[in-house]
Amino acid sequence: MLRYRLAVTSRAAAAIGGGYVLASAAAACLAVWLPLARVDAVVAAQMLSFVVYACAALWVFATRNAWRAWAGVALPALVLAALFWLGRAGGV
């Protein structure tokens, strides 16, 4: 029972906290990379980030175990964050 609750808590953390980080990374990445005027890119990025957040939350609970949940959130977040830094540094 404890193991079950730990797994659930872990997933909840991945969905809520991890999902937010992933969504923010997506927002930042899109804001920099979308081929639009700066203000439009930000607006579009924010709207899309909510979709990313929702999908991430669903995925976290659909996937087979809590480890995969975290991996599925953390890895894309890192990739998007890296892309964001590249874009920002490269003056996109």
Binding site: A23, S24, A25, A27, A28, C29, L30, A31, V32, R38, A41, V42, A45, Q46, S49, F50, F84, R88
Partner: peptide, 10 residues
């Protein structure tokens, strides 16, 4: 809710 988008570009 999502300041990251703004602060990424501004």
């Amino acid at each position: 809710l999502m300041p990251a988008g703004i602060l990424a570009a501004y």
